[in-house]
Amino acid sequence: MLAACGGFLLAVLWMDLIFDTQVLRHRHEDELPEAVLNSIAGYYRRATTTARPMPHLIAAVMVILLCGSIVETIRWQDPVWVAPVATLSAAAAIIPAAVRTVSHAVRLGARTDPLPEQSRLARSILRDHLTSGAFMLAVVVLWSARGLLAGPA
């Protein structure tokens, strides 16, 4: 179940990155072009504000993954390092999202900030999503491979 939660969250990140990566073509410019900001901001307006209850489902899956990972860490089964590493990886992906990325996405979706700030928000979201994606991939690999890592019974 924990690998499935991680896979779901990795899929959500992939969808976000489809829009976020538009920033890369303009990485040497101070401000992103209006068309790029409009595309990314439109996506985040839908994803964070108008697509309810989807953001609540994503948050619930994050809580299930973190709590389940903590429980597995407390159970301390073989191999003993998998659960703590998977838990730390999940936390490294989820906590920045809860603390910073979601609020940046809501702000960008509202388009109330000046254009330089919107560009900064879009770049920040991309960095957060790339980092979270790497950590979430580790979560999926670790929970999926846990039985293989334990060796023969």
Score class of each variant (00 low, 15 high):
L121V: 04
R107A: 14
P114E: 11
R120E: 04
T73D: 01
Y44S: 05
V140T: 10
L10D: 00
S144N: 12
I94P: 00
L57H: 06
A122M: 09
H56Y: 08
I18P: 01
S103G: 06
G133M: 01
L148F: 15
I125Y: 05
T87N: 04
S89L: 08
D113H: 05
L148P: 08
V141Y: 10
S119P: 10
W143G: 00
V85Q: 00
A83W: 11
N38R: 10
V140C: 02
A93H: 03
A134L: 13
L9P: 03
G109C: 05
A105T: 10
W76H: 11
M54H: 03
A138V: 15
Q118V: 06
H26Q: 13
V12E: 02
I58D: 02
V141C: 03
A59P: 07
L32H: 04
R146K: 13
V63P: 11
A97H: 04
R75A: 10
A35L: 13
R146M: 05
R27H: 12
V99A: 08
A91G: 09
E34R: 14
P114L: 07
I18D: 03
L108Y: 01
E72W: 09
V82C: 05
V139D: 00
L126M: 08
M136L: 13
T87R: 06
S119H: 09
Y43S: 00
M54S: 03
A93Y: 00
E31R: 15
M15F: 15
L9H: 03
R111A: 11
A105N: 07
R46V: 15
V141F: 09
L149H: 10
M62Y: 05
M62C: 07
V63G: 03
V36H: 02
Q77T: 15
L126F: 10
L13Q: 01
P53D: 02
V99G: 00
V71T: 13
L24T: 14
A90G: 08
L9K: 01
D78N: 10
P79W: 10
F19V: 06
A93M: 03
A90L: 08
N38M: 11
F19M: 08
T48L: 02
H26G: 01
Q118H: 01
T131C: 06
T21E: 08
T21K: 09
V12K: 04
T87D: 01
E31W: 12
R45K: 10
A59G: 12
A134R: 10
M136T: 05
P114N: 07
M15D: 07
H104C: 03
R120Y: 08
H28I: 11
D16Y: 01
A86C: 12
L10F: 15
R120L: 06
A105S: 13
D78A: 07
I125G: 00
L142S: 06
W14Y: 11
R127Q: 12
T87C: 10
L115V: 12
M15K: 05
T50H: 14
M62E: 14
V80G: 12
